[in-house]
Amino acid sequence: MSARDDILATIRRSLGVTGREPTRRDVVEQRLMRSPRGLIPKRADLPPAEQVALFIKMAEAVSASIARVASLDEVPDALAGFLRAHNLPMALRHGEDAIFTAIPWDRQKTLEHRSGRSDGNDLVGLSHALAGVAETGTLALVSGNDNPTTLNFLPDTHIVLIDAKDIVGDYESVWDRLRSRYGRGKMPRTLNFVTGPSRSGDIEQKILLGAHGPRQLHIVVVG
């Protein structure tokens, strides 16, 4: 008997079932199809403007920094200002997301921006988030050519653009967006929930920022 069949047989023996019971199969099928909502904390059950405010507050509480701009036109200045303030070179790397072609880069002529995945030599990565979760100040980023996953982890500094309209209350709202974008039961290859910059408490339980991922996380809320 294969390991697979053996394990399934032991599970069924232990549970005292055959696996063919129509009621059991039905319960499982319904749950997978309907994915019933659980309890969603009241914390983020707010009007959109307050959700944005909560998102900013929670992200700052986990040591992310935030800038807010009115439109994409202001993004180059915001990026350049941040890089300058942190003594970083005027260079960053981003993916092929449409948002990056909509940014008027020529407003900051000294700001170099390249596209593609990171090979570990970029100091600053720039991504566009699918969504932000107000509940915990969490960003949701999906893999692909638009926003390569390597940009989320290899550069020392990660800057993430997020449209204020994409800030939602809870994780469940992110599942809704994924289901409508990719179809039920389907997922992007990688979904990264990111809550603050990388950290470790492994030396004497003292929390230090900048473990293996970015040392700083800067979020630019657009709109």
Binding site: L191, N192, R199
Partner: peptide, 19 residues
Amino acid sequence: DFSVYTTLSTGPRRPGDPD
């Protein structure tokens, strides 16, 4: 409240994925 990275992985690199 939430760990820094919660990562959901589904299968290998897709066509067109750079990484």
